[in-house]
Design a protein around this nucleic acid. Structure first.
Length: 845
RNA sequence: GCCCAGGUGGCGGAAUUGGUAGACGCGCUAGCUUCAGGUGCUAGUUUCUGUAUGGAAGUGGAGGUUCGAGUCCUCUCCUGGGCACCA
């Protein structure tokens, strides 16, 4: 009996695949294409189990579709710009580019042994000028189409390092390196007009039938369409030019419950009042802290009474105070709101703090309007309008319409739809990103670079010994000629958000070496991505930006109309987790630093180990298992098999040493099974051939359906079961050989190396990677009889075996003759008898 | 704070989408085997109860709809993901 040696077998078949160009993707109009894409990795330098899981899932789909006859495109690339390279440059003194390309080389070396069915000829990195030069060309095209503009926006500013900080670089409100409290600072920045597509991005979600419902919902909420009323209050004692205060509200029905107005500290009126030192100080206080929405929302509600008053639109004698408040955002609506504390929690918190009136104006149906009061919780549900003069008695909806009608007829405002979605700020004050291809000329202003001058390459000679953007201080690179007038000018030193890079790489894969961003024939053939797979953490930003960018690429002639939704189907996979370990001093321990002992673990030098919960593998918690070690130890097939077994792909999977062991044992069991069958007498007859083949066809059907529906763990369970059936089978050689060959085909997407080896060992023709997918024979799936469970009052008590198509009446008769049923009825008649054909019987006594 | 998921044996999880809860794997228990090297094989394994055929309970918690609920509805608790400059 021969043993299975993954270390020899796996490289052997990988070489065979390479030589036969099995995964090379070429357009072929005679065949239907299938484009499988996994979210490309950031080149950190090491692959991790999350990558293994992601790319194995994609590989299962790619190999399965290929076996079904599709012309499969399955490429790989690198999301190669970003902050870690600059951090490495600062910490280790290496150039970000050198660091990145070395990481790419390392990760490619680590990834290849997995045996993924990737067309490596299409590999790309977003930091290649060949890639980002085309991105610059599209930026210019988008400028031409009016999809790009500049405006002021706030950034996190480190006042000590004099540099812009990413949200990630802000720790507890302070800069991560300097430790100085972070301030919000306005800079002129570049924006993409994603908001122009708000409505389209929203309504098109309905067409994304093969996206997870939760992702569509998250995007819908992110876009945040709301219909409301925008109108102007007349102001009293306001500075010149502020005769009116324009507010936006989604609750005009609560207008008679208003007790104040609040404006953002960035509102022009708030700024105009800054000559008052108290207001200037308050606004400055509000500008402290980071820029994340979470931070803004969680901040304590603070307000400052400006002394300005506004008049209620329906009662000239009714005046309301105007506050500057830290919870009103300038970026949404008009940056000013009226507050109705009874029916909005933030307004209520604010009103309680500043002692403002709380008048309920919507009364829930089950409450008495005369006694209904608001405590610490605002009432936001439906009801009838009260305390609101001409609105009293109306529903919320009717009152909204009535107020809207009256405001509009008086010319004070109009209904307006607004979106929460903000334009996409793409400026980054950093070196390691795609340069924005624009020149600032003292005479011509902001001028796009000429396309023939692209790519605008990053200069290589830069230093990171000081904080800030090295491009700002690189005069030789920065100084240039104006593309328009030829005079002395300077380059834009902002680079693009790395989300731009990842917003179109899927299109570039269709022809990664082209001298235009895309080539019409190639995108026409290969687009769209039929199956996109990646982490759910990208559910909003990356996917929304990609959807926008595809639209922008269509508008600029780089993608056909059909590709404005580039991902036909999306699958979001879970993370790979592992237990955590700590020594008695509370230090995190790597799984390699501990050994199992009675009832737990201890450190290698014998100290007790505390076992913590299983959480996402991360370096900081040291709960990582390096895929490279696993592949060295067990082989790629074991790693692939294990990451797909046990947990459903959309959920987190826990990596356990025993689980990896089980996968390895299984692979060896399948191999010895193959070996045993190969050594049988080819003329050997046995018993149970029919049963074995029936089980085989059932397995074909089950595994196929499970792969189609991303039930990889369930498919694996079926494959385990069939392996056990075949192991125990006493069938003759012919049936057993057919069974093992079919089993090999069914495991090809999961453990392709083992499958190839079985195929070859059994004398299969060619490569199994090029063999067609097996088809279940319907005749072999039909069962003659069916086992019906009998429930009495909903509890399973017995079962009967009946012919598959026995009429209901016959089944009822049989059920009433059943001993358990007779006993339960005790001579009486059933109250009800429910027979669900082929499923279940329920007797109600 | 806001948005989105998920809670099922000792553990990871399955359940044809309202029809036998616990498939498959791990672990554990018992037995067989002795190939010495990440053994292999057989049987058992939700909990409680009973000598037993059996009975009762059971899918985070509390209610509800239904002949029938892990699955649908309401409330609630806990865990995870995202929140626009991490990728």
């Amino acid at each position: 009996m021969s043993r299975y040696n993954a270390r020899v077998v796996e490289p052997k078949w990988q070489k065979a695949w390479d030589e036969a160009l099995v995964f090379k993707a070429e357009p072929d109009s005679s065949r239907e294409k299938y484009y499988v894409l996994e979210m490309f990795p950031y080149p950190s330098g090491r692959i991790h189990m999350g990558h293994v899981r992601n790319y194995t899932m994609g590989d299962v789909v790619a190999r399965y579709k290929s076996a079904q006859g599709f012309n499969v495109l399955h490429p790989m690339g690198w999301d190669a710009f970003g902050m870690p390279a600059e951090n490495a440059a600062m910490e280790k003194g290496v150039h970000p580019g050198d660091w990145t390309y070395q990481n790419i080389a390392d990760m490619r070396t680590q990834m290849k042994p997995l045996g993924l069915s990737i067309d490596w000829d299409r590999e790309l990195a977003t930091c290649d000028p060949e890639y980002y030069g085309q991105q610059q060309a599209m930026f210019i095209d988008m400028m031409d189409k009016g999809l790009v503009y500049r405006k002021n926006a706030v950034v996190n500013w480190d006042p000590v390092d004099m540099t812009v900080l990413a949200n990630e670089q802000v720790e507890n409100g302070c800069g991560w390196r300097s430790g100085a409290p972070v301030e919000r600072k306005e800079l002129t920045q570049w924006f993409f007009k994603i908001s122009e597509y708000s409505e389209d991005l929203l309504t098109a979600l309905d067409g994304l039938e093969n996206w997870p419902e939760k992702v569509r919902l998250m995007q819908k909420n992110w876009i945040g369409k709301s219909t409301g009323l925008q109108f102007t209050f007349e102001t009293l004692n306001a500075p010149d030019g502020f005769d009116g205060l324009e507010v936006y509200t989604t609750r005009p029905d609560t207008l008679f419950g208003a007790s104040f107005a609040a404006i953002s500290y960035d509102h022009p009126l708030a700024k105009a009042l800054e000559s008052n030192p108290e207001i200037a100080a308050f606004n400055a206080e509000c500008r402290k802290g980071g820029t994340t929405e979470e931070e803004l929302e969680k901040a304590e509600k603070k307000g400052f009474d400006t002394g300005i008053r506004i008049k209620h639109p329906f009662d000239p004698g009714w005046e309301l105070p105007v506050y500057i408040a830290n919870f009103v955002l300038m970026g949404y609506g008009t940056g000013a709101v009226f507050g109705c504390p009874a029916h909005d929690q933030r307004d209520l918190d604010f009103a309680r703090k500043y002692g403002l009136v709380v008048t309920p104006v919507v009364c829930p149906a089950d409450q008495d309007p005369d006694s209904f009061t608001i405590g610490e919780e605002a009432y936001t549900g439906p009801g009838n309008i009260i305390n609101s003069r001409f609105l009293d008695g109306m529903s919320v909806e009717d009152a909204k319409a009535e107020v809207g009608k009256r405001i509009e007829s008086r010319g004070m405002g109009q209904a307006k739809t607004v979106y929460r979605l903000r334009d996409w700020g793409v400026s980054r004050q950093r070196y390691w990103g795609c340069p924005i291809p624009v020149v600032h000329c003292p005479d011509c202003g902001v001028v796009p670079e000429k396309k023939e001058n692209l790519p605008i390459e990053l200069p290589k000679d830069v230093s990171f010994d000081r904080p800030g953007n090295p491009l700002d201080r690189h005069d030789a690179w920065r100084n240039c000629a104006c593309p328009k007038c030829g005079g002395a000018a300077t380059r834009e030193t902002d680079t693009m958000d790395t989300f731009v890079d990842s917003s179109w790489y899927y299109a570039r894969f269709t022809n990664p070496r082209a001298t235009t961003p895309t080539v019409a024939a190639d995108v026409e053939y290969w687009m769209n991505v039929d199956q996109y797979i990646g982490g759910v953490e990208h559910a909003i930003l990356h996917l929304l930006y990609s959807r926008f960018f595809a639209r922008a690429m269509h508008a600029t002639g780089h993608l056909p109309k059909k590709s404005i939704e580039p991902f036909e189907a999306l699958f979001t996979q879970g993370m790979v987790c592992h237990e955590t370990y700590k020594d008695p001093d509370g230090n995190w321990l790597n799984p390699d630093d501990i050994k199992p002992v009675q009832g737990g673990y201890e450190t290698l030098d014998g100290r007790p180990v505390t076992v913590g919960p299983s959480i996402k593998m991360s370096k900081s918690k040291k709960n990582v298992v390096d895929p490279v070690d696993i592949i060295d130890q067990y082989g790629a097939d074991t790693a692939r098999w294990f990451v797909l077994s046990d947990s459903p792909p959309e959920r987190d999977v826990e990596w356990t040493a025993s689980g990896a062991d089980a996968a390895w044992k299984h692979i060896n069991r399948v191999w010895s099974l193959c070996d045993r069958i190969a050594e049988m007498d080819v003329n050997a007859k046995g018993s149970g051939d029919e049963d074995l083949l029936r089980a085989m066809h059932k397995t074909i059907q089950d595994v196929t359906l499970n792969i189609e529906s991303f039930g990889f763990n369930a498919a694996i369970a079926k494959l385990y079961a069939f392996t056990a059936t075949l192991t125990k089978s006493k069938a003759g050689h012919a049936a057993q050989k057919q069974a093992i060959m079919t089993l090999a085909q069914l495991i090809t997407p999961f453990t392709p190396h083992l499958a190839e080896d079985i195929w070859a060992h059994q004398g299969g023709e060619g490569l199994i990677s090029q063999a067609p997918w097996p088809v279940a024979d319907d005749a072999m799936l039909v069962e003659d009889t069916v086992t019906l469970p009998i429930q009495i009052n909903g509890k399973r008590r017995d079962e009967i075996v009946v012919p598959k198509d026995m009429p209901k009446e016959e089944v009822e008769k049989l059920v009433l003759q059943n001993q358990t049923v007779i006993k339960a009825l005790a001579g009486g008649q059933p109250k009800r008898l429910i027979v669900v054909p082929g499923r279940i019987v329920n007797v109600v006594v």
